[in-house]
């Protein structure tokens, strides 16, 4: 991608005005995907001066700026505590440290990258996206929203809920895109199941979740049933790198194993 001008925004208002001033203008995240586009933009807007690269831990939630790099995210003590560490673990498996020091949390989420290992585990938590100007939207709702978004993602708000999570990425080598990724969390006894790279972007298996969260006590048969429900309710497809059938086999197996693991952690 080529752009003719580079503008370091001095405020969010300035950023948005510049962004809207020309239809081709773009917002820079980590800059990792610029080369993959053949488009031409007039101006690239950079948010680096706006202090959006901070993580602030509060009483019951964590504020993560959209420009926080994946590396800073995964090494942050508050993030590492979430769900026993499964979010930090998931992000820490993405490519190498030198890439994660450039890629941003906001960039991965705003683009709704279908293979994202960031989105899938976050989807099993209570995550609110904050856009400028004033808009707050739950991560799940954002993922299912349509249309181009010209608002600027400034923060994530992650609720701190005690519990345990599981994450698995199935891929070829250690640096591969996920053929499927699976995240399961059990926070305050509420179970969440998210599957991504199906190849579609991460989605919650809401029916399977409703079933489990309605059980008085979850036994092995319930786990099996929930795994089957999750596979049935979500869409899978074949791509060059994994077939639909194989993705479903993986989903069935790892939803089951993930549930077993998070439930084993229940005290």
């Amino acid at each position: 991608m080529a752009f003719h001008h580079y503008h370091r925004a001095t405020s969010l208002e300035d950023a948005q005005q510049t962004l809207l001033s020309h239809p081709s203008n773009i917002l820079l995240g980590g800059g990792l995907w610029i080369k993959k586009s053949n488009a031409e933009a007039d101006t690239a807007v950079d948010l680096s001066l706006l202090g959006l690269d901070q993580i602030n831990e509060k009483e019951d939630h964590i504020e993560v700026g959209a420009m926080v790099t994946l590396r800073d995210f995964e090494t942050n003590p508050a993030i590492q505590k979430l769900g026993g560490g499964f979010v930090a673990h998931a992000v820490g498996q993405i490519m190498g440290v030198a890439l994660r020091k450039l890629a941003t949390v906001g960039g991965s989420i705003a683009a709704k990258l279908p293979f994202s290992d960031v989105i899938t585990p976050l989807l099993t938590l209570d995550v609110t996206l904050v856009f400028y100007p004033k808009k707050e939207i739950k991560l799940a709702d954002y993922l299912s929203s349509k249309g181009k978004n010209k608002d600027i993602l400034t923060h994530l708000i992650i609720k701190k809920t005690p519990g345990f999570g599981f994450f698995k990425k199935v891929g070829n080598t250690a640096l591969d895109f996920a053929q499927l990724n699976i995240a399961i969390s059990r926070l305050n006894s509420h179970v969440a199941i998210a599957l991504g790279s199906r190849p579609g972007v991460a989605a919650l298996a809401t029916q399977a979740m409703a079933y489990l969260n309605g059980c008085a006590k979850i036994g092995p048969k319930d786990i099996e049933k929930a795994a089957e429900m999750a596979v049935a309710e979500l869409s899978f497809a074949s791509t060059t790198f994994a077939s639909e059938d194989y993705r479903k086999t993986l989903a069935l197996t790892y939803v089951r194993r993930g549930l077993e693991e998070v439930l084993a952690h229940a005290s």
Partner: peptide, 27 residues
């Protein structure tokens, strides 16, 4: 590779490894 995938272009930015092929000079 010039596409963020091999690490041969690694430099340190304020002491941290980054991929120079993926870091805009203006930044």
């Amino acid at each position: 590779c010039n596409e963020s995938s091999c690490g041969a272009c690694t430099v340190l930015l304020d002491g941290h490894p980054v991929l120079s092929c993926s870091l805009l000079t203006v930044r």
